[in-house]
Design a protein around this nucleic acid. Structure first.
Lengths: 224, 224
DNA sequence: TACTTGAATTAACATTGCTCGTCAAGGCTC
DNA sequence: GAGCCTTGACGAGCAATGTTAATTCAAGTA
């Protein structure tokens, strides 16, 4: 049984305008019917939307941010979703980024202290070399799996890593490729965040090519 | 278990009159029963009807190239696929790019001459203003639709356009947004190609954000 | 047979939903 | 408190949809 837009708006207590905006941006699924393309909603989709579980990343994807605030928001949203889903969550980034992310998370969740104490949310910084970092992830993923974690979430602010600072951006891409192979062996959902302000178009293209899970189509058709 | 017209109308939240109109036009399958030819509906047909209407047969995506050869290859592949699919195909780009694309296409297809003569493959260059270019696409899409084209393919080398040359890259993004709205009204598959070598990371991020169809997830979660 | 019922057809007309703008008010964040 | 973004609200224009009514016809019933 489908709901029309008025019923959906009443159910969620929002305006029809908001529903239209959300569906247009792809945040909320909706069916279209008839020549006027009227919106019809499934109850399950609406409930999933309010629970915030509609947009869980899968696999190994990346995100681009254009402001520090956006970085904080993206990271906090992903980690919050992961905690809600019961995943073991990691955030890798410069120490000075930890604080705003934690603050943002704390605003929404009361059990942050528990998550930190219980090692369900782990903040870390990137190692100086790709090899070290990969060894770190491998150890953590194995440990988490051994401890019975059913899913793991990783959010990394790659642009803040020492590896991304120097002139050898190719190393970052090699790291990403290796990370993709590693994480594919565990139930890990990863989003690597990049600062669009500090990278060139070519570097950005390389980043995208290193995250095929992002796209609907084969990445080779999109970036070359 | 078949649904009568009242039940079907309740399921889809539409009036019985609409169901009658749609079935009369052959848009929605229905069974007729008895000497009075009463309508009976299958659940699967009804759901396929809404799903089918909401599935976007059209898309507006972008691609990034890092070399002139890559640009040629991407454009030729897309146009070749479009011709194979029987679409009316457009390539918009600087005149000096037309030739290598045509050459690459000719390598795979013998009927290129026919396609060009028959206006199934049309090469063009970008107009100097966004408004002009949008008017051009609108006219072409309407003409193609009127002439019975069932699908249209557009490939554009946006980085080569005059619009993208100046300092006002924001204009390009506005153009993309407007193009997305326009093309959504026609059965058009579009890929806008960008030169990763000439754009900054910020510009590239803007380009990606302007092409939500590219991604598996809501673009707002990926680029901000 | 005559009558009633319910659905289909056709038509005219009023309503509604969509898109695209714009704009002010209200929450969050800092 | 200042700034930013989202939300809610409104209007125009358009086309499909909803509504109502008259009519026809098959099927069930007295």
């Amino acid at each position: 049984m489908l709901l029309d837009i008025a019923e959906a708006a009443a159910l969620l207590r929002v305006s029809e305008a908001s529903l239209r905006r959300w569906t247009n941006r792809g945040l909320l699924p909706c069916l279209r019917i008839g020549g006027r393309r009227e919106r019809r909603f499934r109850r399950a989709d609406l409930m999933a939307f309010v629970e915030g579980q509609s947009a869980t990343p899968t696999g190994h994807i990346c995100g681009l941010y254009t402001s520090d605030r956006a970085r904080t928001r993206q990271a906090a949203r992903l980690l919050g979703d992961g905690l809600d889903a019961g995943s073991v969550c990691f955030f890798a980034g410069q120490p000075d980024v930890h604080e705003p992310v934690l603050a943002q998370l704390a605003r929404r969740r009361r059990s942050l202290r528990n998550a930190l104490d219980g090692q369900r949310l782990i903040l870390t910084r990137y190692a100086d070399s790709a090899a070290q970092q990969l060894a770190f992830w491998k150890a953590k993923f194995e440990a988490a799996t051994r401890d019975g974690a059913r899913s793991i979430r990783v959010v990394g602010d790659v642009s803040g890593a020492a590896l991304a600072r120097g002139d050898g951006f190719a190393r970052v891409l090699e790291y990403e490729a290796a990370y993709g192979r590693l994480s594919g062996r565990f139930p890990v959902n990863t989003q690597c965040l990049y600062d669009a302000r500090v990278h060139s178009g070519l570097e950005t293209a390389g980043v995208l090519a290193a995250h095929p899970d992002l796209f609907r189509q084969p990445v080779a058709h999109l970036v070359s």
